[in-house]
Amino acid sequence: MSIGHTLLGLLESGPRHGYDLKRAFDEKFGHDRPLHYGQVYSTMSRLLKHGFVEVDGIEAGGGPERKRYAITDAGITDVEQWLATPEKPEPYLQSTLYTKVVLALLTHRDAADVLDTQRAEHLRSMRILTDRKRKGDLADQLICDHALFHLEADLRWLELTAARLEKLREAVVAP
């Protein structure tokens, strides 16, 4: 995730202090990892350098978190461009799980066990996410759903692989 673009976007509604920015970010997007002040500082100074933001004022007491930032026209354009650019789908071609399965087959271990264990672990994560989703608000639900759908995709792959283990064994072990 691009923290720079996110902070820029948050500034579009009006100038904010660095401290406010961090709080707004954490509230809306930082469910897993809250931002450090350092991250805010370094990101903001990079944006300043590029001319995407400008300093709107400084409160007494100093420190970067006391600075008030405002977005520039260039910054707005940049946010627009970012939103308009689709994210590149991530293909995950080099999956650790695939490697584990193939290794299990090559070493004549039980590959189904590997898959089952993984499924149980995935489901455990999904349970936690589902639980959180049920207790949280709409934003929680959407974020958890995103993760859940990814995990579900993994699980589908697990099921498919489990169903094709014999074929896979023939393919990787034989020659």
């Binding site: 089952d116 349970r127 996410l129 589902t130 759908f149 579900e152």
Partner: peptide, 12 residues
Amino acid sequence: ARVAAYSDREIV
């Protein structure tokens, strides 16, 4: 799986 995630544990 997403329906199963509402469970406490699963049996395959």
